[in-house]
């Protein structure tokens, strides 16, 4: 797969997704370029999580296409739309990191074992090398001092930082964050946002669903506002968050002004 800097890492086209009769995504188009940080805002139920989960193919979708690094997600490229099958879905997911609101660390494994899991079991990296790289990642998220602790012994903020390191260990092309600070006590939010800020500065391609308006304003290259399963408005945060073009986004911003 040859790609140039201008090729999108993630490309979503005419994405439609329903749960039974409920249409949740009603034609989403989104391109994310290498190194870009896209923050997705929107009211509860607007389909933000569902869109992220489609990009990682944790959800099937009825029509439209998604590619990551040029690889089709979920279904064959072209008109046939055959499901790709488990092996190829797993292969695509190797290139997509995902961090969940509820951390989802493996509770029966230590912190460093959590981080080594992907490299060792998926990429077949030698344990010693995986451990060395894992420790470096833990140092980066400020968690190397807890390498041998179990997740249950950590605070929420610490667990979330380990979860970020676990995703990074796969050296993904893009990182997806789904409200990763929403479950945290307020005083722990900062330490996680700081790690994400650092990643953004290093040039990691990121799609971030969050309610943290400050983060959107300061870190996003582009803000996307979703409502009712469509993208209502998008643009540079300095532009659209200062002067929303639509009433819906304006109302959303004023409701969330306190943040």
């Amino acid at each position: 797969m040859t790609s140039t800097a201008s090729d999108p890492i993630v490309s979503v086209r005419k994405l439609h997704k329903s749960f039974d009769k409920l249409e949740v995504l009603k034609g989403i188009d989104l391109d994310v370029r290498r190194g870009e940080v896209v923050v997705v805002l929107g009211p509860s139920g607007s389909g933000k999580s569902t869109m992220l989960r489609c990009i990682n193919f944790l959800e099937t979708f009825q029509s439209g296409t998604i590619t990551v690094d040029g690889r089709p997600v979920g279904y064959e490229a072209g008109d046939h739309r055959r499901p790709l099958g488990e092996a190829r879905n797993a292969k695509v997911r190797e290139h997509v990191g995902m961090v969940f609101q509820s951390y989802n660390l493996f509770p029966h494994r230590t912190v460093i074992e959590n981080v080594m899991m992907g490299p060792v079991k998926v990429k077949k990296v030698a344990r010693a090398l995986a451990r060395e790289k894992g420790m470096a990642l833990l140092a980066k998220v400020g968690m190397d001092h807890k390498a041998d602790a179990y997740p249950g012994q950590l605070s929420g903020g610490q667990q979330q930082r380990v979860a970020i390191a676990r995703s990074l260990a796969m050296e993904p092309s893009v990182m997806l964050f789904d409200e990763v600070t929403s479950a945290l006590d307020p005083e722990l939010v900062g330490e996680v946002l700081k790690v994400m800020r650092g990643l953004a500065q290093e040039g990691m391609t990121m799609i971030v669903v969050t309610h943290e308006m400050g983060f959107a304003r300061q870190v996003a290259d582009r803000v996307v506002f979703m409502d009712g399963g469509v993208i209502v408005e998008e643009g540079a945060p300095g532009d659209i968050m200062a002067a929303p073009k639509t009433e819906r986004f304006g109302n959303f911003l004023s409701r969330n002004l306190d943040q």
């Binding site: 990682n56 488990e86 797993a90 997911r93 190797e94 995902m98 969940f100 493996f106 992907g118 998926v122």
Partner: peptide, 20 residues
């Protein structure tokens, strides 16, 4: 969430069963 976390680091079904 355990299954989804394992899937999202690219684990396939059998190693996921065995390890997670």
């Amino acid at each position: 969430g355990q299954v989804e976390a394992a899937m999202s680091i690219g684990m396939r079904r059998i190693p996921m069963l065995r390890e997670i």
